[in-house]
Amino acid sequence: MTRRRPAPRPGLRWTLRRRLVVLVLGLLAVVSAGTTTVSTLALQDSLVAQLDEQLEASSERAVGAEKIPARPTGR
């Protein structure tokens, strides 16, 4: 007994080329999304660290300014 395959319905059969193209495009989309996510998170961490450093330096300058005696305004 040989088993016969059912005839493919028109329009539903994908060629190997079409399947490979869809697979490659899908993988490219997943890799791009992952790269975008990692880059965004790394940039955000870097910018937050930079802002923290700037705020810390600014606050140190402000505290240092309180210790400097005020100059007389009149001559």
Rank of each mutant, 00 (worst) to 15 (best):
A57E: 04
L51D: 14
S39L: 12
S46V: 03
V24T: 04
M1K: 11
S39A: 12
S46I: 01
E53L: 15
R5L: 11
G34V: 01
Q44A: 08
V21W: 06
R4T: 11
S32P: 00
V21C: 06
K67D: 15
A49S: 08
P8L: 05
W14Q: 06
Q44S: 08
M1R: 14
R5N: 08
S32G: 08
R5S: 10
V30G: 03
L27C: 09
R13V: 13
D52A: 14
S59W: 15
I68M: 03
P72T: 04
R13I: 13
L47F: 08
L51K: 10
A57T: 00
R13L: 13
P72K: 15
R5V: 11
L43P: 02
Q54N: 12
A42D: 00
V24E: 01
P8H: 08
E66Q: 14
S46D: 00
G34T: 01
D45W: 11
I68V: 15
S46L: 07
D45N: 09
S39D: 06
A29Q: 06
T15F: 10
A42V: 08
S59C: 13
A65Q: 01
L25M: 09
L25V: 02
L12P: 04
L51T: 02
V31D: 01
A42H: 00
K67I: 15
L41T: 01
Q50H: 12
Q50L: 04
A65E: 00
Q50V: 04
E53M: 13
T2C: 07
G74T: 08
V24C: 07
R5H: 09
L55Q: 05
A65L: 14
A29C: 03
R13T: 15
G74F: 15
Q44I: 04
L55Y: 09
P69L: 07
L28Y: 06
A70E: 07
G34M: 11
A70Q: 06
R61Y: 10
R3M: 06
L12I: 06
V31Y: 12
L16S: 07
I68G: 00
G74S: 11
S58D: 01
Q44F: 05
T37A: 05
R3S: 12
R18W: 12
P6K: 15
E53D: 14
M1Q: 14
